[in-house]
Design a protein around this nucleic acid. Structure first.
Length: 670
DNA sequence: GCAAGGTC
């Protein structure tokens, strides 16, 4: 079949969506244009051609070198972006289809980016005065047909808002990246491509901050007692019902009392706790769980999920939703899943028990449901990683239909009668497994306790004074920094993992427990000093507020962009001026990156002095922590300053920055 | 070359 003379051109965001739309509209004949699948059909008396893009076909670009740069325009991505040559054929197909279209319908995902993707194509290749928007939130026949029966005018609010997002991210990102690259080159003499952006920079700062916090952390000692008792012929370690002591003496005194006295069961409490099943996955939760269970990086998990999606085994993975809408036929999916080895039995059980309503989580997504199995079974053997992630998704989906598990907890409160010091001994038993059987990645470990009566004496077998040290928060991993990004709402489902990888590629961070590199520390300092805004999550909040105002027509896109330009331009010009007429040393001073002296500890530029000692930003922090922590040490153990330093220097896990300051202080005393 | 956002 060949193309009709005139037709309505429907633009879908991706080939799979185009196929779904074609099916729903009964557009049965398919042909390919330059390798791109296109569907033809009639709907309500008109000829339709349905054609896909593959996400954004256009991008912002400029021919100008250097900074500041505020002249940009939209152009085809395949021309301007390396690695996007595959888009040329989508571009060609749409360019060839556009001239004979009497009308255009933007049928991309119903979100802001979808509005921009379709708008840019119609604007550059077609005619926006003959265009409509269709809105459907699920790729089901009913939703699609309903949307096409009632096409709407183009959604200008979303389009304007989306265009502004692109432009603002571009002018901030490109300008600050270029300025940063030039500054670093002048300061270090090294050529490296550096980058900064609204999402990557606050993420880098968070990683650097956590790294520095740990390296500059000074542990302080705490003292507690470890008590073992004999119950029913078995030895148990009690849980203390009190906080550790700051003074060693207090712990020793308590230990002495406990060794000489009897412990008595004060009360026994039994309670039944119910554990609700988890909701089906959104992408973040899948990435976190795959990291926890299998150790996969978030980027790898997305890659695997993408593959499973392309094989029709699971639904679209780039979603924030934790809900399965009623349009999804759960009983049909379960019916098909009964054919799976092992987990198939759970699907049968759900059908037999009539458990067909999954638990919902709070996550929402305008375009897609939670990640769930489609019910299609693997036709050929899956690789190990694919099979792991597939099973994770299936088990999670199945678990979400099950009732809560119930766990019985038994808690004894055990007391030393004279001082009233309380301890706890807690046991638990799973009464009904329910979803825990299916989702075996979560375990509730049972601990059986003997029966004890209230008032019963419990013999103490050992009491020890234990010295603990305060600890800094753990370094981030790829999975935990991803969770942080989601919690502060920067980046999107589709981009977060990629942006984390970018920080590694640039050489800003390294390690599976994420450390900052020298380069990362320097970039953080330059950005924090000169472009503070781009290092803060607040920039995104501000952006979102403005984008909402644009979407509601309260403010024009141009004025929001002008405002950003007027804020950025003077900063960039100042940096440029200083760059062109200063040498490296003077540059540092004029940009506030150096106070002119060298850090006594490491020889880097100092940012200030403490007790007459010039120190860099990092060692200054460690130095101050060291002075502050000494007060707690003296109070807790009565050590003198030199002994304090000596004890610290022998701690195996002491942070690097503190270790260096300790070594410096011990040497300079000598 | 630099962003962040789509998708393959």
């Amino acid at each position: 079949m060949s193309l009709p003379k005139r037709y309505v051109l429907v633009i879908a965001e991706k080939p799979r969506a185009a196929a779904k739309i074609a099916e729903a509209l009964g557009a049965g004949s398919k042909l390919t244009i330059g390798g791109i699948p296109v569907w033809i059909g009639r709907f309500r008396g008109r000829d339709f051609v349905i054609a896909p893009t593959a996400g954004h076909l256009f991008t912002l670009h400029t021919d100008e070198k250097g900074f500041p740069v505020f002249n940009y325009s939209w152009g085809p991505r395949w021309v301007y972006e390396p690695g996007s040559k595959h888009l040329a054929k989508f571009y060609d197909a749409l360019r060839r289809l556009s001239p004979n279209a009497e009308h255009y319908i933007n049928a991309c995902d119903y979100d802001i980016e979808g509005s921009v993707i379709g708008y840019n194509i119609i604007r550059h290749l077609g005619d926006v005065t003959r265009a409509s928007r269709v809105k459907f939130s699920a790729l089901t026949k009913e939703d699609i047909r309903k949307a096409f029966e009632d096409p709407q005018p183009l959604d200008w609010g979303n389009i304007e808002s989306g265009l502004a997002r692109h432009v603002l991210d571009w002018i901030w990102g490109i300008n600050v990246s270029r300025a940063l690259t030039r500054i670093y080159q002048k300061l270090s003499g090294e050529r490296a491509t550096l980058s900064a952006g609204r999402v990557q920079s606050p993420t880098l700062i968070e990683l650097v901050e956590r790294y520095v916090e740990r390296e500059a952390f000074v542990p302080t000692p705490l003292f507690t007692v470890s008590v073992k008792v004999l119950c029913g012929g078995k030895e148990f370690t009690l849980t203390n019902g009190f906080d550790p002591f700051r003074r060693q003496e207090d712990a020793r005194r308590l230990a002495k009392v406990l060794r000489s006295k009897k412990l008595v069961v004060k009360s026994a409490e039994k309670r039944v706790v119910s554990l609700a099943p988890p909701p089906p996955f959104n992408l973040t939760e899948l990435q976190l769980e795959a990291a926890r269970v299998f150790g996969y990086s978030p980027a790898r998990t997305l890659e695997i999920a993408e593959e499973l999606y392309l094989r029709s085994l699971i639904s679209y993975p780039r979603t924030n939703s934790e809900k399965i809408p009623p349009t999804v036929d759960n009983s049909q999916i379960l019916q098909r899943l009964t054919g799976l080895p092992e987990v198939g039995a759970y699907a049968s059980e759900l059908l037999r028990r009539g458990l067909l309503v999954p638990r919902e989580g709070p996550g929402e997504d305008p375009a897609h449901p939670a990640i769930h199995p489609t019910g299609y079974l693997p036709t050929r053997e899956l690789g190990r990683e694919e099979s792991n992630v597939y099973e994770l998704v299936v088990r999670r989906y199945l678990a979400s239909f099950y009732p809560s598990s119930t766990v019985e907890e038994l808690v004894y409160t055990i007391v030393e009668p004279e001082t009233g010091t309380e301890f706890r001994l807690a046991g638990r038993r799973v009464v009904s497994q329910e979803w825990l059987r299916v989702y075996h990645y979560r375990k509730v470990t049972a601990l059986e306790l003997p029966a004890l009566r209230t008032g019963e004496e419990v013999p103490v077998t050992s009491v020890e004074v234990v010295k603990l040290y305060t600890r800094p928060p753990p370094l981030y991993t790829k999975a935990t920094i991803l969770r942080w990004m989601e919690s502060v709402n920067i980046g999107t489902e589709a981009t977060r993992a990629e942006i984390i990888e970018k920080l590694f590629e640039r050489g800003y961070v390294r390690g599976s427990s994420i450390n900052a590199t020298e380069l990362g520390l320097e970039v953080a300092q330059i950005l924090g000093t000169l472009f503070k805004e781009i290092t803060e999550v607040e920039l995104t909040r501000e952006l979102e507020r403005k984008l909402r105002e644009i979407a509601f027509g309260k403010v024009r896109r141009e004025s929001v962009i002008e405002e950003a330009v007027s804020k950025l331009r003077p900063k960039l010009e100042e940096v440029k001026r200083v760059l062109s007429d200063s040498e490296a040393e003077e540059l540092k001073r004029r940009l506030g990156l150096s106070a002119g002296l060298r850090c006594r500890v490491c020889g880097r530029d100092s940012v200030g002095e403490e007790d007459g000692v010039p120190l860099c930003q990092l060692h200054l922090r460690a130095y101050r922590n060291l002075k502050e922590a000494y007060a707690a040490w003296r109070e807790g153990t009565g050590v003198g300053f030199e002994e304090y330093l000596e004890t610290l220097s022998r701690l195996p896990k002491l942070g690097r920055l503190v270790k260096e300051v300790v070594a410096y202080l011990r040497n300079s005393v000598r």
